[in-house]
Design a protein around this nucleic acid. Structure first.
Length: 629
DNA sequence: GCAAAGCTAAACAATA
DNA sequence: CTATTGTTTAGCTTTG
């Protein structure tokens, strides 16, 4: 007896052989497939390669997608990455400008010198000078980097804790090059001054530069909070005052957890007094301290700049999305969408103060994804192309009308792969149709209409749809006058679920609790289900579409839960799908199981033409018209 | 480690 | 003849 025959027989035990051929064929083919595969390729199991942590500076769209979907990073980390990207771009721009300026200067110098003396020798000299100057510039830049790096190592430039190894460069180099240059010059000159003369002359330089700074008030705030009232900022005395900080004995910003928080210091000070001593001795007004201070100033300014920019951007995003989010019907639940949950979380945590309207609208469409190819997030996420199940499938199975309906705006506009299986989506498409039946083309249209993601790679997903239709016995092909349509055998569909949902009962709970506000409905549904007559399509007769969807969700969850608890009761239960009994149309060649053919419920007939499905018809204009042809 | 479920690709047949 | 629709197989990954 060969392997296939053996398996054929085994499968016949588990699957009703009298069912349509596709039922057990699936079992046979798949199991044999797997068995043969495992027999022949035992050594070929591949360990899924987990994507290594990307360097923070370069994020490919794929990685971005993965980050978003896998919740690898916290919102803060995402924020940081965003900042880094911005800083990098800024840096590039500024570097270009910087070089341009230098070129102009050189040109100017050249011209001047040419005017002064026109001897060719001098021209050569100028040329060499120019070269030397350029080299000097390069050197200077390198030194800047080195210096900043060393500052980072010393901890001079502190980074928020919890951030993943944030490199300094993006931030520091985000500074305006001229500023940086000057900063570097001053820092180095301070050092050299220290080395050579040891005097404090450079501190005077600091004073002048501080006073002549473009943002004196800001500077004063940073240097000394008390000096803000001082119109004429004098660095020397206020700074000393600020450093002594005697007014706030135990809340010195430079003192915490018994450690001096001076950048790069971290000296342990047992009490506040010793800290003050340490502060006055180690961090007195000298060249080093002032230099460090200035570095810190720059960092803070840069951060503020970044923050302002990001705030602005976030505000714009939120405004845009808020407008959009008012479009869909009341859909206040982000539900179990991995991506949207993550995103909304990150969005709201990123800078809550700039979002006056968000706290009250935790809507699913809080997505950073706006339409149009100009927006980074959208495009970068979809350019990934066909993504293979990056999403977590465990959330797929309990797909419900509510899941899709409440997030439909999101998926309509964002080319994000919906975290639902093809089977679930097909079922949803069919159930949303007024007749509970769709042609293949109508299903296609539903996909493209409801999900931006499916506006790409049509060949792939259409093939998958056809594959699913043929493969899963929950999809029944029905010959119609117009041709063939597909319907859903709800019982078959539900049958598949207990396996998956069994491992995750908490999911059901969460689901139910998340819909706690319709508890009465919940109870009613439970009651109705307890009677063993599952009112599969009663939602259609409910007035409120949202409630209907919610009820549908609950019912489905309960179905899953119940089927899980009393195993295969549904097999013999009268709660059979009405689908099979409903359509008078001729069913496909294979005769149905007589038991199944007598579906006791015919609720669907009343629901079929319920006007309440009109809200779904918004999305069905096209296919309906197309079908008329 | 295994089984089940899912996805993608592709071959192929039937049909419009 | 071509495009669409439907079926099936295969190979692979993910999940429980």
């Amino acid at each position: 007896m060969d392997l296939e025959t053996t398996f054929f027989m085994i499968c016949a035990h588990f699957y009703d052989i009298s069912r349509p051929a596709q039922n057990w064929k699936y079992c046979k083919s798949h199991k044999i497939t797997n068995l043969i595969f495992y027999q022949n390729h035992l050594d070929a199991f591949q360990v899924p390669v987990s994507v290594a942590m990307m360097t923070p500076q370069v994020i490919t769209p794929q990685q971005m997608q993965q980050i978003l979907q896998q919740q690898v990073l916290s919102p803060q980390q995402l924020q940081v990455l965003l900042q880094q990207q911005q800083a990098l771009m800024l840096q590039q721009q500024q570097l270009q400008e910087f070089y341009k300026k230098q070129q102009e200067q050189l040109q100017l110098q050249l011209l001047q010198q040419q005017h002064a003396g026109k001897q060719p020798k001098e021209q050569q000299q100028v040329a060499t000078q120019q070269l030397a100057f350029q080299q000097q510039l390069l050197q200077m830049q390198q030194l800047q980097q080195q210096h900043l790096l060393s500052l980072q190592r010393q901890g001079l430039l502190t980074i928020q804790p919890g951030q993943p190894a944030l490199p300094l460069q993006p931030l520091a180099q985000g500074m305006i090059p001229t500023e940086l240059q000057q900063l570097w010059k001053e820092v180095t000159s301070a050092h050299t001054a220290e080395e050579t003369t040891g005097n404090n002359h450079s501190s005077l330089d600091l004073t002048t530069t501080c006073v002549s700074s473009s943002a004196p008030s800001k500077t004063s705030l940073i240097m000394n909070p008390h000096a803000s009232t001082n119109g004429q900022l004098s660095v020397h005395t206020p700074k000393r005052e600020s450093l002594s900080h005697e007014e706030h004995p135990h809340s010195h910003p430079l003192y915490g957890h018994g450690v001096c928080k001076w950048p790069g210091c971290e000296a342990v000070c047992e009490d506040f007094q010793s800290f003050l001593k340490h502060l006055n001795s180690e961090h007195a007004l000298d060249d080093r301290s002032t230099a460090q201070c200035r570095v810190q100033m720059q960092v803070v300014q840069q951060l503020e700049l970044q923050l302002a920019k990001d705030k602005e951007r976030l505000q714009a995003m939120m405004t845009h999305l808020h407008v959009k989010s008012t479009e869909p019907k009341a859909a206040p639940q982000p539900l179990n969408l991995v991506s949207s949950v993550t995103l909304s979380k990150s969005a709201s945590e990123a800078s809550p103060q700039s979002l006056p309207h968000t706290p009250t609208t935790p809507t699913a469409p809080i997505t950073p994804v706006t339409q149009g190819p100009s927006v980074i997030t959208t495009t970068s996420m979809h350019t990934v192309g066909p993504i293979r199940r990056r999403y977590s499938d465990k959330y797929n199975v309990p797909i419900s009308s509510a899941d899709i309906a409440q997030n439909q705006e999101f998926y309509k506009n964002a080319e994000v792969r919906p975290p639902f299986t093809y089977a679930s989506l097909i079922r949803q498409a069919i159930l949303e149709s007024p007749e509970k039946q769709l042609t293949l083309n109508e299903i296609y249209n539903w996909f493209t209409r409801m999900f931006a993601y499916f506006r790409r790679n049509a060949a792939t997903w259409k093939n998958a749809v056809r594959h699913n239709l043929s493969l899963h016995k929950c999809f029944v092909r029905v010959e119609n006058v117009k041709g063939a349509v597909w319907t859903v055998d709800e019982v078959e569909f539900q049958k598949r679920r207990p396996q998956k949902i069994s491992g995750n009962p908490s999911l059901i709970k969460n689901m139910q609790s998340s819909h706690a506000y319709c508890t009465p409905l919940n109870a009613a549904l439970q009651a109705s289900m307890a009677e063993n007559s599952i009112p599969l399509y009663t939602t259609a007769s409910m007035g409120n579409p949202t409630l209907g969807n919610l009820a549908s969700a609950i019912r489905e969850e309960l179905n899953g839960a119940m089927e899980h608890t009393n195993s295969n009761e549904s097999d013999s239960s009268p709660g059979r799908s009405p689908m099979q009994a409903v359509h008078p149309v001729h069913v496909k060649e294979e005769p149905l199981d007589p038991e199944e053919a007598e579906g006791p419920l015919s609720l669907v007939t009343t629901a079929n033409h319920s006007p309440d499905f009109d809200h779904d018809r918004d999305y069905e204009d096209e296919p309906v018209n197309e079908d008329m042809e």
